[in-house]
Amino acid sequence: MDIGIIDYFANSGKSLLHRASPLYKIISTVFVLSSIVITNDLIVLLSIYLMLASLVILTRLPFLKIISIAAYPAIFAVLFAISSWNEDWIIPATIILKALCAALAMVILIVTTPYPSVFSSISPFLPRVILEGLYLTYRSLFILLELMGNLLRALRIRGGLSPKRYIKNISNFTSGIGLLLIRGFDLSERLYGVMQVRGYSGKIAEEEGKRKLGQEDIFPIAFGLFILSVSLGARLEDDFKLYGIYLLNLSIVFVCCSAYYVYFHNTTRGVFWKR
């Protein structure tokens, strides 16, 4: 479970994407997701994945860590791909790539935007109980992870986890989940009480001006629109597909340029995302 590290990335990063408004990052992500839904062209998908990878580089966060976080759905996509295997590797590859692209787009959003900001941006579209539930779930995850660490430590030092006693171990651990539920509930309830005492009334306060389109928002929006138009072009115009190889090359150039600017930034000056 990487929520702790995801939260750290979202809050500690200072890249252009981190500074962009959550609302426009969400819109950009929706564009990218729509592109993934409408395109079935493996080259376009591969290009989208590489472009997203270049975004990951631009976030200045650990590249491989983020790629691996976003690789999780591949496990299930592989299962699905196997079940639809027909001596043709293109279709399974397309399925897996779709899963990877969508996951990477979501992960980029969430490692550059703290959860509360995401919730705040989508709050106008959600009922209060869901919004509060989302927020408390997010907070509770941290409570739970700490409790889980404590539980595992307690089980270990008190003989609750022993080698080769699998049934006993499972029984101890699962009872422990019951304990986590009870203790987590108490702590979550206390937290909710404190939040209310400190002025929380079911709405997460949003910073002023976050909805206005700023200079930093142009990049994610432009990126999302570019991906969407490429996918639409590939879907609607047969001739567009002929230029797929150029798109793939372009995405490789994207990756190289991003890597150059981020990893060799000392040699370049005046790059606007270095601020």
Binding site: N150, L151, R153, A154, I157, R158, S175, L179, R183
Partner: peptide, 12 residues
């Protein structure tokens, strides 16, 4: 006996 004793109590 851990610092926060609650962290070592497991059973109901």
């Amino acid at each position: 006996l851990l610092q926060n004793v609650e962290n070592q109590i497991i059973a109901p």
